[in-house]
Design a binder for these strands. Structure first.
Length: 330
DNA sequence: AGCCAGGACGGAT
DNA sequence: ATCCGTCCTGGC
């Protein structure tokens, strides 16, 4: 099969947008999550305190985004967005982009509802104080987040990182803007124009057939993500798990990240240990007991509270990012 | 060398 | 409904 010949697209700055957020808003830990394994989709620039991220607008227009803290620029909560592109963007494109960033980072969500819900949990509130204003973030489309959750399943993070790198460098578009070299995510067409054998060469293992299947689904039904947003919780979960390769773990990642259901929390062995230790002081408790504690303590905001616990742990213990070299064990 | 961890599937019960 | 062998790769 034909594989796209590697090329690099250079982008130039074409627009600036100010995207206000409902306060409080924590720019740094909304756009950047210390617990997430690094990919070439995005880059955090410490010196300029800017965050770079690629974006495929309406499937064909390739964008490079540079985000910074609107508070520091204009004294208002939110994101200052600099847009790099090959061609000028029209009003419709910009409206679509603005809508995407608002949704991806929950800028229009009132995080105070979560704080109010858990206000009596003193231990959690110490953590919230450190990260106040942090939102759940998911810049990916449903197709993309299901690729990531498939790549995360049943392996160590180090190998997930390797698989993602291989997939992006083989099928993503390489872009250069503002001195950064990053990749866009690939599309369902990119995968279907390749082959299961080729994916196996990229060390995704038995997931090759799952990734082909996911690509097939989204080629047939590109609006699946939008459809899921209109469904109730059970129907959305059921629809996700109809996709071969998407089980409970991957579905919960999509439900929490993409559909922003604050209740959902997914327990892989890594999170099970972290929360076992957080609740009971040891890593050994079974997932049923850990999950029961999440429900009793945090109810409908179990996923959101969990997000704060995990990210706080990584902020305080940056050496935990050695999972890049080691594995999920803490 | 052989064995194990890590989600999901599919067949057996 | 629950259990179990299998799929892959990398690390021990």
């Amino acid at each position: 099969m034909i594989e796209r010949i590697a090329s690099t697209i250079e982008l130039n700055k074409t627009n600036e947008l100010s995207l206000p957020a409902i306060p409080p808003f924590n720019f740094k830990y909304t756009v950047y999550k210390p617990s997430h394994f690094p990919t070439r989709l995005e880059e955090s620039d410490e010196a300029s305190e800017a965050f770079y991220r690629t974006y495929r607008l309406n499937e064909d227009k390739i964008l490079g985004l540079k985000m910074s803290d609107l508070e520091k620029k204009q004294g208002e909560s939110g994101i200052f967005l600099e847009v790099y592109s090959a061609n000028e963007l029209d009003r419709k494109d910009l409206g679509y982009l603005e809508n995407h960033v608002n949704g991806a980072y929950g800028l229009k969500e009132d995080i105070n509802e979560f704080y109010e819900y858990v206000k009596s949990d003193e231990e959690l509130n110490v953590i919230i104080d450190n990260l106040r204003g942090m939102r759940n973030s998911c810049f990916e489309t449903l197709f993309e987040i299901l690729n990531i959750s498939s790549i995360l399943q049943n392996t160590t993070v180090k190998r997930s990182e390797q698989m993602m790198k291989n997939m992006l460098s083989s099928f993503g578009e390489r872009v250069i803007y503002d001195g950064k070299e990053l990749y866009t995510f690939y599309t369902p067409e990119d995968i279907l124009n390749s082959s299961e054998e080729r994916l196996r060469e990229l060390k995704v293992g038995y997931r090759a057939k799952f990734l082909m299947e996911i690509a097939r689904r989204f080629l047939q039904n590109p609006d699946l993500g939008e459809k899921l947003k209109t469904m109730n919780f059970e129907d959305a979960k059921e629809t996700l798990m109809e996709i071969k390769g998407v089980g409970p773990y991957s579905a919960r990642i999509a439900l929490f990240q993409y559909l922003r259901r604050p209740h959902e929390i997914n327990f892989d062995s890594w999170k099970r240990k972290i929360f076992s230790k957080f609740f009971f002081g040891n890593e050994g408790e079974v997932v049923e007991k850990v999950e029961k504690e999440v429900r009793e303590r945090w109810g409908n905001y179990g996923g959101y509270a969990g997000l704060y616990v995990i990210e706080d742990l990584y902020v305080k213990n940056p050496e935990l990012q050695y999972w890049r070299k080691d594995n999920k064990k803490i």
